[in-house]
């Protein structure tokens, strides 16, 4: 059973198709990059799977079940720019938000949740910044806090929307290390990614997307010059490697 199973998925904003008749299987314990040009529907694909954007048609299963019945198996790292970093809170508090789903309604986080969150901050190398107001963190540090929040969710399947956008080189290396650790621990990680050059180094599998799914599979098979031409329409200069 694949971690993610998508059949005949179509999503439209105001009549305009954003994703068209998409079939996609993502096997468990894999590290998959979703790549494609701007407007290809990469974020929309993730958000539709997570139930944030309604699908016009199609079937989506997470470990064989609809998302609504398997929420606790899934962790999410949104785009860093999607929140207001001037919000009055600190890094530790943001990480604890990853535990709200398991806490359920009304119950407040306790000492136990605090310790879990601290541990997650440590895993991303941010222990020293637990009490730092989030607007005073660099872009890379903010991204690590988001990653720590997802780790706190203790999920089996992770979706991450451009976790490498605008981060420094150290953070990028740290994040790749965490992604590979997750994969090696049997978790499934799906990442919207922009930098084509790093795809073969960072990921096992790729899904090439441009409204339709152009190709998907292990890097060696799917990440070919031919498929990239089809995805980007001949605008990929770096490929002469």
């Amino acid at each position: 059973m694949p971690a993610v199973y998508v059949r005949d998925l179509t999503v439209a904003y105001e009549e305009k198709p954003v994703l068209w008749d998409l079939d996609l299987d993502i096997p468990t314990a894999s590290l998959t990059a979703i790549v494609g040009p701007n407007g290809a529907g990469k974020s929309t694909l993730i958000k539709t799977i997570l139930g944030l954007v309604p699908a016009a048609a199609g079937t989506i299963r997470i470990f064989g079940e609809p998302y609504g019945r398997n929420r606790k198996a899934v962790g999410y790292v949104p785009q860093r720019g999607s929140v207001d970093w001037d919000f009055p809170t600190d890094a530790l508090d943001v990480v604890m938000m990853g535990l709200y789903g398991k806490l359920g309604w009304i119950r407040r986080p306790s000492r136990r949740e605090r310790d879990v969150a601290l541990n997650c901050l440590e895993q991303v190398g941010m222990s020293d910044f637990a009490k730092r107001q989030i607007s005073q963190l660099s872009g890379g540090q903010q991204q690590r806090v988001f990653l720590a929040r997802a780790l706190a969710q203790d999920a089996r399947l992770y979706f991450m929307d451009e976790p490498f956008a605008g981060v420094d080189a150290t953070t990028e290396i740290a994040i790749v290390g965490i992604l590979k650790t997750l994969r090696d621990a049997g978790k499934t990680v799906v990442v919207v990614h922009h930098d084509l050059e790093t795809v073969p180094d960072y990921f096992d599998r790729v899904a090439l997307l441009n409204v339709k799914l152009i190709a998907t599979g292990p890097i060696a098979e799917a990440f070919s010059r031919d498929n990239l031409q089809k995805t980007y329409g001949g605008k990929v200069a770096f490929l002469d490697r």
């Binding site: 999607s82 207001d84 806490l103």
Partner: peptide, 21 residues
């Protein structure tokens, strides 16, 4: 007071709140 944690998450990151159900 009862929904403080939910309201806080909603105000900070409504999208993430949505993925939590």
């Amino acid at each position: 007071t009862a929904l403080y944690k939910e309201f806080k998450l909603l105000a900070f990151d409504a999208e993430f709140a949505g993925t939590l159900g």
